[in-house]
Amino acid sequence: MDKMKVTYEVMLGLAAEMVWDEALRKQKSEKLYLEIDKALATGDEVAFRSLTDELRTIN
């Protein structure tokens, strides 16, 4: 029974880590979208390309 409990705790920990990683990725993605919008609004092509490249790496 102890082995089952340990396995459950490990699985629960992995699930929590996955949720945390997804939340961080989503937050970073939203920040990049805002920065991309600003780059478009100001016509900053260099920043736009850099930010879209970064966005591609996290999606």
Rank of each mutant, 00 (worst) to 15 (best):
M1K: 11
M1T: 05
M1H: 06
M1E: 04
M1L: 10
D2H: 03
D2I: 11
D2E: 08
K3V: 12
K3E: 09
K3H: 12
K3W: 11
M4P: 00
M4T: 07
K5C: 09
V6G: 01
V6S: 08
V6H: 07
V6A: 14
T7S: 14
Y8N: 06
Y8M: 05
Y8F: 14
E9C: 03
E9S: 05
E9T: 04
E9P: 00
E9K: 10
V10W: 07
V10C: 04
M11R: 07
M11P: 00
M11W: 02
M11C: 02
M11F: 02
L12S: 11
L12N: 08
L12D: 11
L12V: 11
G13P: 00
G13A: 04
L14Q: 11
L14H: 12
L14M: 13
L14Y: 04
A15Y: 03
A15W: 06
A15Q: 05
A15P: 02
A15T: 08
A15M: 12
A16G: 03
A16T: 10
A16P: 00
A16N: 04
E17G: 11
E17Y: 12
E17V: 14
V19W: 06
V19E: 08
V19L: 07
V19H: 10
W20Y: 14
W20P: 00
D21Y: 11
D21W: 10
D21M: 08
A23V: 10
A23E: 15
L24K: 15
L24V: 08
R25G: 06
R25V: 03
K26P: 00
K26M: 01
K26R: 05
Q27P: 01
Q27W: 11
Q27D: 04
K28E: 15
K28F: 08
K28G: 01
S29E: 04
S29G: 12
S29H: 13
S29P: 01
E30A: 05
K31R: 02
L32D: 03
L32R: 04
L32V: 13
L32S: 10
Y33W: 05
Y33N: 05
L34K: 14
E35P: 02
E35N: 05
E35V: 11
I36H: 06
I36R: 03
I36E: 03
K38R: 15
K38C: 05
A39L: 07
A39W: 11
A41G: 07
T42G: 01
T42P: 00
G43K: 04
G43R: 05
G43N: 07
G43W: 07
D44P: 00
D44A: 02
D44C: 01
E45M: 09
E45I: 14
E45V: 12
V46H: 07
V46Y: 09
V46C: 03
A47E: 13
A47I: 02
A47Q: 10
F48N: 05
F48R: 14
F48T: 10
S50M: 10
L51Q: 12
L51T: 10
L51D: 09
L51H: 09
T52N: 04
T52M: 05
T52E: 07
D53V: 03
E54P: 12
L55C: 11
L55D: 15
R56M: 15
R56W: 13
R56L: 15
R56F: 10
T57R: 06
T57E: 09
T57Y: 02
T57V: 06
T57W: 02
T57N: 12
I58W: 02
I58S: 02
I58H: 00
N59C: 08
N59M: 13
